[in-house]
Design a protein around this nucleic acid. Structure first.
Length: 310
RNA sequence: CGCGGGAUGGAGCAGUUGGUAGCUCGUCGGGCUCAUAACCCGAAGGCCGGAGGUUCAAGUCCUUCUCCCGCAA
């Protein structure tokens, strides 16, 4: 099929690759404009842009998807279908209706659950045992379109958002290709989303990153892996930020107050929680690189009053 | 020029008002032990990120460069 691909982050790159590999004709790749990123204020191209350039595909970075110029561009590309994967912008009705087969989207959850910006992170934060990928026919509204294909994958106890992203991105590419094939053959069933079961996965906010030791250990464990590899969950130690990257849940907190350091030696760095305790495996003090609890403990002096959080 | 922290033996850190570089872990060797990741003894391993400068003398002061990282976007 002749497709126009719209996407921005790494997650979308996998889909782009899959579509190409399946032999579809990519008439154009549309991604968001370069944005100042990182420490200095360097302009960084989105991953999809880099990939498109690498592949020599025609690339467009419209400032807006709502103006006439963009619509005109799409018409010129004469796509039969527009594939959208984490593009990051709401598309107007005029765009959704333009191609013969409309716009189809790859979403990192089992819709109608986790509609919205951060489905993968939310699934882990909530400690779900399963999530998946959905291919849907885009409609007006946030991820409300009809479901075309859906596939579930299990979430491991210690899976991180990064790992799950990887898996879902790959699976998303596969499902997307299946969907395109079925779409072209006219043998694709549509399933309306059950609005009653819809849930939302709002974008992560700053407060999602702060560790509250008053919560149960398993909740914090989910928080840590859900925010790994970015932006990371953090607490405070000696007034400095301390990011926590990997943890393990322990049952016993010795009835000590939440945030108390139960143990800090070569064998482990264990913090008491409201319920249970959390063993910190890898951490990162502000300004330092990620290090094992062992290295961290080695250079710091703890005393009985040591506690984390503020 | 967005704000800030940092660059010291393999790792994590300390290094006072400038005067021959330390700690913990690890590594290697030896000892103890039924045994050990435990304990004891010992050893190796650093031109203190690069380049200039001040000084009798600089890891420690000044200038500049490179790299790493946290925050903010």
């Amino acid at each position: 099929m002749r497709v126009v691909f719209m996407g921005t982050p790494d997650f979308a790159v996998k889909s782009l690759d899959a579509v190409l590999k399946a032999g579809h004709e990519v008439k154009g790749v549309i991604t968001q404009p370069d944005r100042p990123k990182g420490r200095g204020k360097k302009m960084l191209p989105p991953p999809v842009k880099e990939r498109a350039l690498q592949l020599g595909l025609p690339l467009y970075q419209p400032q807006s998807v709502k103006d006439e110029a963009f619509l005109a561009l799409l018409k010129r590309l004469e796509a039969e279908v527009i594939v959208v994967a984490a593009y990051g912008r709401i598309l107007p009705q005029s765009v959704l209706e333009l191609p013969l087969f409309g716009c189809i989207n790859v979403h990192g959850s089992l819709l109608p659950q986790y509609r919205g910006a951060a489905p993968i992170q939310r699934a882990i934060l909530n400690g779900d045992k399963e999530t998946g990928v959905t291919i849907m026919q885009m409609a007006a509204g946030m991820d409300t379109g009809d479901i075309l294909l859906k596939k579930a994958v299990p979430i491991g106890e210690n899976d991180t958002t990064g790992q799950l992203f990887e898996r879902l991105a790959y699976l998303g590419g596969e499902l997307l290709v299946d969907a395109l094939e079925a779409l072209a053959a006219g043998r694709l069933q549509r399933e309306k989303q059950n609005e009653a079961e819809a849930t939302y996965a709002p974008m992560l906010s700053k407060t999602d990153e702060i560790i509250d030791w008053q919560k149960p250990a398993y909740i914090l464990h989910n928080q840590v892996r859900g925010l790994n590899p970015t932006p990371g969950a953090y607490t405070f130690f000696n007034g400095e930020r301390l990011k926590i990257w990997e943890t393990q849940v322990l049952d016993d907190n010795q009835n000590r107050p939440a945030g108390n350091v139960l143990k800090a030696d070569g064998e482990g760095l264990v913090i008491s929680c409201q319920e249970g305790a959390l063993k910190l495996l890898t951490v990162q003090p502000a300004g330092k690189k990620i290090m094992s609890f062992k290295d961290f403990v080695n250079g710091v002096t703890f005393d009985m009053s040591s506690r984390l959080g503020q």
